[in-house]
Nucleic acid binder design. Sequence first.
DNA 1: CAGTGGTCTAGACCACCGG
DNA 2: CGGTGGTCTAGACCACTGC
Lengths: 244, 244
Amino acid sequence: MAETDPNLMLPIHEQISEALRSRIRSGELPVGSRLPAESTLMEEFSVARGTVRRALRTLNEQGIVQTLQGKGTYVRSGRPEPSIAQTLVGLSESLSYSEKSLTTTVLRQDIVPASAYPEFPSTLDPAEQLLFLDRVRSLDDIPVARLKNWVRLSLAPGIDGTDFETTALFTALDRRATGHLSSGRRTFEAVLADGDIANTLRISTSVPLLFLKQVTYLDDGAVVECSDVWMDSQHVTVAMNLIR
Amino acid sequence: MAETDPNLMLPIHEQISEALRSRIRSGELPVGSRLPAESTLMEEFSVARGTVRRALRTLNEQGIVQTLQGKGTYVRSGRPEPSIAQTLVGLSESLSYSEKSLTTTVLRQDIVPASAYPEFPSTLDPAEQLLFLDRVRSLDDIPVARLKNWVRLSLAPGIDGTDFETTALFTALDRRATGHLSSGRRTFEAVLADGDIANTLRISTSVPLLFLKQVTYLDDGAVVECSDVWMDSQHVTVAMNLIR
DNA sequence: CAGTGGTCTAGACCACCGG
DNA sequence: CGGTGGTCTAGACCACTGC
């Protein structure tokens, strides 16, 4: 693997996976076709087998190819459209695939001490400042989701000046965070709406809601943000695509 | 790594990841603590570094630990919920990471014509045979999930002879399906239990349940199975890990 | 600086698949 | 059977972390 610009130096396994991705995009490796055997790729890229396998692992994890023992590695049939749940994106990024108009109303946007939210999923100095965001998302003017977010201001300085009616939280985080957003975790539960939630979603308290708890991590493992989301599944469904 | 029973022979890296999972469950490795360094684990298990890394990779993918360059591998905060959602696995595969005992009761196991389930997510000959499975999953004898599955017998011949109290559906599908399981799709909703569901889960009809609709595809894109799952989120939480 | 994980090599043996 | 991927070893060098 030649590499001309030292600034663009990427691990060899990433260069290989990108080269293969490119062949798949161009149609040189059509859907359903078999990739060259690992031994062939070793020779072609002049690397050890472990490096080829590391590259193929990435493509498998991305759902681009599927490796079958004793048979080979095959280009997957057409990639499913981006799903809301599989990669780390904000709710608005995923809902925006819909044709309906998405609007956001900010109910509260305050700076609070960490002691005001002891459930924050990592231990904080009680005096640390958090940005508290309380919003309602509507599709075609029907409220469908209530979102409460807590953001560590020390890890996203200046984010409190954002207009969150027009800017998605993830967009602001990408710009302001001291590190890169790296991973997240979501849990799903079913709950009944409490009075406050029911009011803003204009439903009764006996309606079951989809409740998501989310945590967003930076590269270094620090929790930069966490959120509670209640969704009315009569109006929005959470879907995800899965890879074996 | 000694291995006495050749029938139970598992790859060494899986034995190591299970050993570490067990230490985490038992509290020997508490939340937030650092795992032994890879070099230490090499000595302890008498394996090469690559094998240790393969084991840690599994735990990372399952969201149980988080590895940080130059620092170490840490036990993740939060309950170790099984991450059912990121890769295509059956419910039992994901719940089995819990320390509780998982049991399955089969309520019905019948062959029905496709006409009996018009909601099947692909167009079928009304006379085609489907295996209908109706099961209850319990953790420590508390019923936590009700599962209804419809499997196309023509794509998984002989699967109707399986004992589904001891064999997971995905295990049977892996063995019987005419192609490889390749992908799937899940949707999440919150619903109220109807009378029948409430009875089997021993809850009232006003309890909100997590409702999952799932579809499983083969390599060639054919729908081989679909299912409806109701889960009591007071007892089980669905979690997923997300990568940016 | 020492310790950690990330990458990479060059071999080896095995299990699975298909003809 | 030959070809494929799955596992595993025993090294090596490097980048990042924290003291």
